[in-house]
Design a protein around this nucleic acid. Structure first.
Length: 638
DNA sequence: ATTATTCCTG
DNA sequence: CAGGAATAAT
């Protein structure tokens, strides 16, 4: 159909004009460099989003077009952007998420210190401080008293404490969403439960689990609120700094703040501890009362004492926070009353400080002693929470981590295999090279060593000193874990994505590989992958084009690519080795066009020009289509 | 000078 | 597919 060389192709062939039609498809106007390196943990991204959206909401809409905003608004996308922010509801389509993509996050997130920041920050600092304090105090009160009631009003990560109007409407929406999800979850639990019969006990348990999930979601939301409030109170610092050292240095924290910090630390750790402990008690009461379920795996030793301790507790109600606290083993309380971060435990060395590339460096002073009884239940109770709505990132692994874990854990034997346990305990791949990762060794694996420290460290929460186990449990339950490296599954997914896009923008990559920590390194690895894909693709094209020229007719019309073509077989073998994916027709068209381009160029002896392929590349780069949304799900599902 | 991409090699 | 040189683009 397309008989003409490059000059005629551009517009009419681009049926799905991508938003990144620029020649430099990878950088557009937002460099993914240091900006994206803020650790990339879920929560840090959450926080960043919160902060960012707050800023955006505060600024006038004119700020969208401020040159310093660095948000790449094409004429195509700007209406959607405005729509997105004004409605404050985000659909799950990739296009509406664009404005919140990490790239734009980074640029806007850096704005407080940038040239484009408004002076309101400093001018209204005094007033804002007072308001801030009021809010924080309110939060504390809420934490101290609020029972895990479903009706509790809580803001999610997307909402902002300052813009009441916004958050109010948003809370309603999100509350609804949350209910939906919870009910969905319940369906899953009832249908996919291990026992199959829904005893009263199981019923109660489920209800309590849901309640606890909600509570945890609220707690996380409060974390975010508090963090946000603090961070906002000192925009000039941008980075959250150690209150104590800063105080001594005449830094931004005054006595009141120190006091506030102490109170917060105490309340937060207390609330989290008690709620998590309650959850644990409930679930362990059911799961572990059978001696069959005493599991010993690696460092996880379960003694009879613990079991007795666990099963002797009655189900916790909302009013037993303090009560349940008092039942905790001494070690779990150790971190609570201690206020000074100087008190380190031996395991603090395990907390790995991220390299300086982090935009929001901070360390968590966490005591790492954790009650043994926390180990096992965490495996089986890796739930998401309500905070996940509107967060693409969360939604993705949500399916996999949660339901996968829940459905797989109870095997026919009723016992998780060591591999499963290990897998669940090792969601963070510390060193992952797709091609060179050695098989996981079945050796003893200390649960609190490695892996999770990265996660914890990247949380970037204020200095809340709390019991490690509870905190970790909360993290594991309220958020899924980001992979730190690309896996073979990601590679497979990338190859399939190549059928749709030969030149994926960094935007596309971030949205479709959101279940990995997209550091600079990972991102360039992904880019390299696609570069390699293209290389193979073009080599095949040239090869078959020359071959066609030799043996076939002289007409371009006869140059075609069909599913039975040898060229297609070659490509399919490369990108879809398992042949379990239906290659879209569009790819055949693109391949045919590519082949024709090569054929023409060779026919016209353009290949004498050393850069003769460049023109072809340019043509092909405009033929990218949208990647189906299904690819946003984590790749392991197949 | 820096960054992105291709080309080449193992 | 990854590493690195070469090269183009900014």
């Amino acid at each position: 159909m397309h008989h003409f060389p490059s000059s005629t192709y551009p517009e009419d062939r681009a049926e799905h004009p991508p938003s990144f039609l620029h020649d430099n498809t990878y950088n557009s106007s937002t460099p993914p460099s240091s900006s994206r390196s803020s650790g990339g943990s879920l929560i840090s991204m959450l926080l960043q989003k919160t902060i960012e959206s707050e800023q955006i909401l505060q600024e006038s809409s004119a700020a969208y077009y401020h040159p310093d905003a660095h948000i790449s608004f094409s004429a195509l996308t700007s209406p959607r952007l405005v729509g997105h922010y004004s409605s404050t509801s985000s659909k799950s389509s990739s296009t509406t998420i664009e404005p919140l993509s990490p790239a734009s996050q980074a640029s806007t997130g850096a704005s407080p210190n940038g040239a484009g920041s408004n002076q309101d920050w400093t001018l209204e600092l005094g007033d804002r401080r007072q308001a801030k304090r009021a809010r924080v105090e309110n939060i504390i009160r809420g934490i101290a008293v609020s029972p895990p009631s479903p009706s509790v009003h809580c803001t999610d990560g997307e909402t902002t404490p300052t813009s009441d109007l916004q958050s109010e409407t948003m809370e309603n929406k999100q509350e609804n969403k949350r209910k939906q999800r919870v009910s969905q979850h319940q369906d899953l639990l009832t249908t996919g439960g291990a026992s199959g019969k829904s005893t009263d006990e199981g019923h109660n348990l489920k209800k309590q689990l849901q309640t606890m999930q909600r509570l945890l979601g609220q707690l996380q939301a409060r974390f975010i609120q508090i963090y946000d409030t603090w961070n906002k109170g000192y925009p000039e610092t941008e980075v959250f700094m150690d209150p104590y050292s800063e105080f001594n240095n005449g830094g931004p924290f005054d006595r009141e703040d120190k006091l506030l910090a102490d109170i917060l630390k105490y309340e937060l750790s207390r609330a989290v501890n008690s709620s998590v402990d309650s959850i644990f008690k409930n679930i362990s009461h059911t799961l572990f009362k059978s001696p069959q379920l005493h599991i010993k795996d690696g460092g996880m030793v379960e003694t009879d004492d613990e079991t007795m301790f666990l099963s002797s507790n009655e189900p916790a109600s909302s009013s037993t926070h303090v009560d349940s606290m008092s039942r905790l083993p001494p070690c779990s309380k150790s971190g609570m009353a201690q206020q000074l971060p100087e008190i380190q435990t031996e395991a603090l060395s395990l907390v790995v400080q991220k390299p300086a590339s982090m935009t929001r460096p901070c360390s968590l002073n966490l005591t790492v002693k954790r009650p043994l009884h926390f180990h096992q239940p965490s495996l089986l109770y890796n739930h998401p929470t309500d905070l996940q709505e509107d967060h693409q990132l969360l939604d993705n692994s949500f399916h996999h981590d949660t339901f996968g874990g829940l459905q797989c854990a109870p095997t026919t034997t009723g016992l998780p295999t060591p591999e499963m346990v290990d897998l669940l305990w090792n969601p963070v791949k510390v060193k992952s090279k797709v091609t060179s990762r050695p098989p996981r060794s079945p050796q003893v694996h200390h649960p609190i060593a490695t892996g999770h420290n990265v996660l914890l460290d990247s949380l970037c929460l204020p200095h809340v000193k709390m019991e490690y186990g509870s905190f970790q449990s909360m993290v594991k339950r309220t958020s899924y874990v980001l992979n730190e490296g690309l896996t073979t599954h990601h590679l497979k997914k990338a190859k399939l994505m190549f059928f749709y896009t030969r030149y994926p923008s960094s935007n596309v990559l971030t949205t479709f590989f959101s279940d990995v920590q997209l550091t600079r390194c990972i991102m360039s690895q992904l880019i390299k992958w696609f570069s390699n894909f293209r290389e193979f693709y073009y080599i095949q094209m040239e090869k078959f084009a020359r071959q066609a020229r030799v043996e076939r007719v002289n007409s371009v019309r006869d140059v075609a690519v069909r599913r039975d073509s040898e060229l297609f077989r070659s490509l399919n073998m490369h990108y879809n080795k398992a042949n379990d994916f239906q290659v879209p027709d569009r790819f055949l068209e693109v391949a045919e066009i590519t082949l024709q381009e090569f054929y023409i160029s060779i026919s016209l002896a353009r290949d004498s020009d050393p850069s003769w392929k460049k023109a072809i590349y340019k043509v092909i780069s405009k033929l990218d289509g949208d990647v189906p949304a299904e690819f946003k799900a984590p790749p392991i599902t197949t």
